[in-house]
Amino acid sequence: MKINHLTSAEENLMKQFWKLETFYLKDVMEKHPEPKPHQNTVSTYLKILVEKGYLSTEKEGRIFKYKVLVPYEEYKKFLLKEFSVNFLNNSGKEILEFLFTENIISKDDLQEFADLKPAKAKEPKLEYANEILNPKKDKKIKDKKKKKK
């Protein structure tokens, strides 16, 4: 799924939509903080977000029910990758350096993260791969068995 960039107004509305997941226009108008935008403005943004692939619509009688298609976590990943590629040379080291210099993360945070060691994955058994990659060894073993008989 290709994720497109959002304007700040679209992003602000999407933050509300991510909380609702499925909603009607009236739900958005009720939950939007003051000063509330005009209903036509919200309706226009909904149409744009459908075109960008963030929302889907389902017609129910004369009104539309909207559903979020791009999860919040996916959008966060998209933004972080864009930031990393465009401003930090796609380097993990530069990301960490930036986070440290901006006091977003501390050494204690990093140490705590480092202490969370992922469980080691079991190495896969390569029985079939070994048979394919080393067929000569198998033949030698079979030949020795035949000679013993």
Rank of each mutant, 00 (worst) to 15 (best):
L79Q: 09
N86P: 04
V28Q: 09
W18I: 06
V68S: 05
S84R: 03
E11Y: 14
E11K: 12
A9E: 13
T7N: 03
E60Q: 14
M29I: 13
E21T: 09
D109E: 08
I3P: 01
F100G: 00
E127D: 14
L79R: 05
K19L: 14
N12Q: 11
M29H: 05
Y128W: 12
H32Y: 15
D115N: 14
V70C: 07
P124E: 12
L13T: 00
V28D: 05
K125T: 14
L116H: 12
L20K: 11
E34T: 12
K26S: 14
D143M: 09
K93E: 13
K107D: 06
D27E: 06
E127C: 05
I105E: 01
K31E: 14
N103F: 01
K77M: 09
K31S: 14
Y24R: 15
P33Y: 08
N40C: 08
L80I: 10
L13Q: 02
Y72L: 12
K142L: 11
H32C: 11
K52S: 04
P37N: 04
D143P: 02
K26V: 13
H32D: 08
A129T: 14
E58L: 13
H5M: 10
K148C: 03
M29S: 02
H32S: 15
K76Y: 00
E82M: 05
K26T: 15
E60W: 09
N4S: 12
F100Y: 07
P35Q: 04
D108L: 15
L13W: 00
Y128H: 08
D115F: 00
L79H: 01
Y54H: 07
N40K: 14
F100C: 01
Y24Q: 12
Q111K: 12
F98G: 00
N86V: 08
F78Q: 03
D108T: 15
Y54S: 04
V68W: 08
K26R: 15
F98T: 02
E30P: 03
M29P: 02
Y128S: 09
E30G: 05
F87E: 07
K145R: 13
V70W: 06
N4R: 12
V70Y: 03
E51N: 08
L116M: 11
Y54M: 03
D109C: 04
S56I: 04
E97R: 11
L88S: 00
E11D: 10
F78Y: 15
N40F: 10
H32W: 15
D143Y: 03
K77W: 01
P124H: 08
Q39N: 08
P71F: 00
Y45E: 08
F100D: 01
E123P: 04
L80W: 02
L46S: 04
D108K: 15
N86G: 07
E74F: 00
L20G: 03
A114Q: 08
T57N: 04
L20V: 03
V68C: 05
H38N: 10
A121R: 14
Q16K: 13
P118D: 10
S8A: 09
F17W: 10
E97Y: 01
L96F: 05
F83Q: 00
S56L: 06
S43P: 00
F87D: 02
V68A: 03
F64Y: 15
K146F: 11
K81P: 00
I105C: 04
D138R: 12
P37L: 07
G61P: 07
K122R: 13
N86Q: 15
E94S: 02
E11V: 05
G61I: 04
T101G: 02
Y66M: 09
K76L: 15
V50P: 07
